[in-house]
């Protein structure tokens, strides 16, 4: 790890540590507000941007209860950078960390270290890996939706419009993300229950640009394909573009997940059949509230399930 970037990071960290010590030194009055750090993935991603805005709105209404810091990483899959973010806020002496981990396993050790330093840690959005948590002897409460259930709801809605044995394909999220795996499993649950033929399941890495060639290959390689189940709406946009490229318009159903603004328009036009809303705007607030309760010693740090809703054209 002799890259110059790391050494700059360390330099920054050391100087911030110095700063933190001085801040913490004069900061621990009993009437002081706690500081909550919200660490998300990429703020360039609409979902996390919505999450951030939800958190800021929550903070605006509860300004006398806590201080908020929001930190995002540049690249959604840059695990190293997110670990450095956790180290940074630890050095800054925050009281609680609410984190949407970029990787379900790699973030566990640093979260454990934060807990050992007396910081309350709450896991949102993407659940940390249970085996690694057990191995590290850590319990971190998870506040978030059941992605598998949400995906199964969308899959069942789709299956009602298909015939038993129809060909369908899945475009998965990033392969190392737990929520991506859960959504895939939810889709598979619904397809299996309805007796559909899943001809292929490949990753589109959450992105429109990466999902579109995958969708093109699926559409051209399987002329009888009836539906494409996408693990998020960005990838559903890619699938819709691929259908246009192939001149197949609306002959193939596309379903998404997340209910982003662009997807709502496509829903209304009937180009996406349905999507799933897991209320990104409220997700961070739920996590923050959970952390605040834990700081007060009220919540026992148990998992909390947040709502997921199926969104169809009739509902808009």
């Amino acid at each position: 790890m002799n890259r110059p970037r790391t050494s700059t990071g360390q330099l920054l960290l050391v100087s911030l540590m110095g700063l933190a010590v001085s801040v913490v030194g004069c900061h621990k009055h009993p009437d002081d507000k706690p500081t909550v750090a919200l660490i998300v993935k990429s703020l360039a991603n609409e979902f996390f941007k919505t999450m951030e805005e939800g958190a800021r709105a929550h903070h605006d209404q509860h300004q006398d209860e806590y201080d908020l810091k929001v930190i995002g990483i540049k690249n959604e899959t840059d695990v190293t950078q997110q670990i450095e973010c956790v180290e940074l806020v630890m050095a800054q002496g925050v009281d609680a960390i609410v984190i949407a981990p970029a990787d379900s396993k790699a973030l566990v050790p640093v979260c454990k270290r934060a807990m050992d330093a007396g910081i309350v840690v709450v896991n949102i959005d993407n659940k940390l890996d249970a085996d690694v948590l057990r191995e590290k002897n850590a319990t971190i409460p998870f506040v978030g939706p059941d992605n598998r259930k949400g995906a199964a709801m969308a899959g069942t809605y789709l299956a009602d419009r298909l015939q038993r044995g129809d060909e369908v394909a899945i475009i998965e999220g990033a392969p190392n993300a737990f929520n991506g795996i859960q959504r895939k499993q939810g889709f598979e649950d619904a397809m299996q229950a309805a007796g559909m033929n899943v001809v292929s399941s490949q990753t589109g890495y959450w992105e429109t640009d990466k999902a579109q060639p995958v969708a093109s290959a699926l559409i051209n390689g399987h002329p009888d394909l009836k539906a494409i189940l996408c693990a998020n709406d960005s990838m559903a946009l890619g699938a819709v573009a691929a259908l246009r490229d192939a001149g197949k318009g609306r002959s193939v159903y596309v379903i998404g997940f997340d209910n982003i603004a662009a997807a709502q328009r496509l829903l209304k036009e009937g180009r996406i059949l349905c999507t799933v809303d897991q209320h990104a705007d409220k997700l961070a607030s739920f996590g923050i509230e959970h952390a605040l309760q834990m700081l007060k010693g009220e919540a026992a740090g148990v998992d909390q399930e947040t709502p997921v809703d199926l969104i169809t054209a009739e509902m808009l």
């Binding site: 093109s216 559409i219 051209n220 390689g221 399987h222 002329p223 691929a242 246009r244 490229d245 192939a246 001149g247 197949k248």
Partner: peptide, 17 residues
């Protein structure tokens, strides 16, 4: 080597992309 590669839709897709 690929099933259904030599089809009008494949070439149409490429032409559009």
């Amino acid at each position: 080597s690929a099933k259904n590669f030599f089809t009008a839709t494949t070439f149409r897709t490429i032409a559009n992309q």
